[in-house]
Design a protein around this nucleic acid. Structure first.
Lengths: 356, 356
DNA sequence: CTTTAGCACTCCCTGTGGTAGAGTGCCAAG
DNA sequence: CTTGGCACTCTACCACAGGGAGTGCTAAAG
């Protein structure tokens, strides 16, 4: 892909222009806009070259050129200069994310603020650190019948609750004993480890363990197992912004996209991919491999808590989006969210004696 | 509004026909469909009468008739016979709502199942019974810095958590003492009462109360106050179903509607209105008084827990919806949700000694 | 060899007119 | 009161032509 300087400049101006107003751009316009002293005819020759390389295409014979996905790819990879964020926007971001709030709200705020600033849809994967987060506290509370409410608190300050059915009814004091046993025995241990320990305990001990211990172990196991599903989740905001974008005018495609927002599976998978690579990543149109994302691009960045990557967030919009603006928004949101989450982690696991 | 039988039959068939295929219906079709032995010309005369009464209108001179909002009103109030639900649909509903799950999931399931069956959007207001629900249990857990995670459990089995900033850092044992104090002092008392008691306690005691008590009271107060906002919430499902409905083809209107789903304020207000009246209520088009609901109808029903109305749910779709199908869906969902919520309430508040 | 001007060509978009179809309103007869 | 008949209206659809935008090609100029 060796483009000479002139061709690069022209491709860049073409894409910028096209992003700005969505019209195919012709040789005359391009010649004037590019700042090079070239005639439209010369530009036409170069456009023919670019078309051969698969970087641009024309919707029909007499309609100017439009970037292809490959064209966008080259653009974002080599030609794009991201412009630093407006200080007012940075302030907005900080204001939204630096106020203390629990993880759930934080995620929601991040998603919303991204969608508000970019005028597109914001997506945030909920953090996946259950396996690593340390167990902090558990509570068993009896409901009607044999149902028991289990509240599980991890070291990072997140709370999960779940209703399970027990084998019989338990008295409040039995439940309290069970909780005490569990809190004493497992405080400070990572959830992943707790899970393995529970499995062992169940297999080995068989019937001869104390009733209370038995109860605690089984209930906790159900609660921790249940977490897995719940945590595979995604927060989407500002979907409706996408409805005003003429590029996505096809109601049918739009509907499929919205369904994807609700199903979440595909998007989660996509976000999962970009968890590994550090920094901002961009998926253009069909690159992502999902049909629903046709004509869409996704700009993602991983975020971390306490120095470890725990999730991904991003913005989703039409392929024709203002990348130079969206990229820094996603980037900075990821950084701010990381900071907020790291602040939030409990110190007590390391610095203080675990609560008993 | 005195319609003779013939006119009623014609209006009914017209609306049924229009609901079925969305086309303005002409006199010839109507004459054949209605089962009355009438010629198109006679039907035309009657249609002119109905038009004068404001029950139908024609989009243009030669285009058949279409029901007006008033026409729909008369239809649902006096002409409509709701058909009982398919037993397979009832099974689906029961399967979804009778499996034990916590309140939050229950609400989500109710909304989803309604949208799935009606192929429209389902909305459920989250229950408002905080003031009445009894306080059950509180936990304070220290996070980094001066931040404290407060977990509040009410008697109905719902869990709320919130992060607050304390005036200084507290040790785990201090926090535990505070929680113990609070759990002992307030167990079984309704949240509304707890709130008032806390206000009193703060005013009266001034500085001379014990440090721990002081801490507990202040933290609990923040948590309980916070609840108010959070609980003003709404769960929407199946919005994307609305995108495939040709009646709502105008992207701009659709966008406004989706914004309303996100803002939630207007919809909550609407649902709030129908909390008082028992049974299914129907808002047709502009009747509701909200611009965004133009061309939409909302079918709502209140639901209860332990015999007391705590919220409203419903379905929202185009004015031209299959009322005779949607109405029983909403009705039964409300009943099933009521049953599920009533099951869920904890008995312990009444039957057992409060946990200490 | 590259750049440029000129020119014919292609395709879209818009507006126009004409026609068929559906349905109405009205009138006069049953 | 009901019905058949008839003139009228409005829409939807089609074909067609003209203007506009932009291209590709060619030949000449740098």
């Amino acid at each position: 892909m060796s483009l000479n300087l002139r061709a690069e400049v022209l491709l860049k101006t073409l894409i910028e222009r096209y992003i700005a107003d969505g019209q195919p751009v012709g040789s005359r316009t391009l010649a004037r806009q590019a700042g090079l002293e070239l005639s439209p005819a010369t530009v036409r020759n170069i456009m023919a070259d670019l078309e051969e390389l698969g970087l641009v295409s024309s919707p029909h014979t007499s309609a100017g050129r439009v970037p292809t996905e490959l064209g966008y790819r080259v653009f974002v990879d080599t030609l794009l200069k991201v412009r630093p964020l407006d200080s007012s926007e940075v302030r907005k971001l900080k204001g939204e994310l630096m106020t203390p709030q629990d993880t759930e709200h934080l995620i929601g705020s991040a998603s919303q603020i991204m969608s508000k600033i970019s005028k597109l849809a914001g997506i945030v994967m909920v953090p996946r650190r259950d396996e690593k987060a340390a167990f902090r506290h558990i509570d068993f509370i009896g409901l009607s019948g044999q149902r028991i409410l289990v509240i599980l608190v991890t070291d990072d300050g997140s709370v999960h609750n779940r209703i399970i059915s027990a084998d019989r009814k338990y008295s409040p004091s039995e439940l309290e004993q069970a909780a005490n046993y569990f809190n004493d025995a497992y405080a400070g241990i990572s959830l992943g480890k707790v899970k393995r320990m529970l499995l062992n305990e169940i297999q080995q001990a068989g019937e001869d363990m104390q009733r209370i211990v038995h109860l605690a172990v089984h209930m906790a196991r159900q609660a921790i197992d249940g977490e897995r599903e719940e945590t595979e989740d995604l927060v989407v905001s500002g979907e409706s912004n996408l409805m005003e974008i003429p590029d996505l005018g096809d109601i049918h495609k739009l509907r499929k996209l919205f369904d994807a927002f609700n199903t979440k599976r595909d998007l989660l998978h996509l976000l999962d991919q970009s968890m590994r690579a550090g920094g901002v990543k961009i998926f253009i149109g069909s690159e992502a491999g999902y049909e629903v994302l046709e004509d869409c691009s996704v700009v993602t960045a991983p975020y971390s808590a306490d120095g470890e990557v725990v999730g991904t967030l991003g913005v989703i919009g039409p392929t024709r989006m203002a990348y130079e603006h969206v990229i820094p928004v996603v980037d900075i949101t990821a950084r701010l969210l990381s900071a907020a989450l790291s602040l939030q982690g409990s110190e007590s696991g390391h610095l203080e004696t675990p609560r008993q």
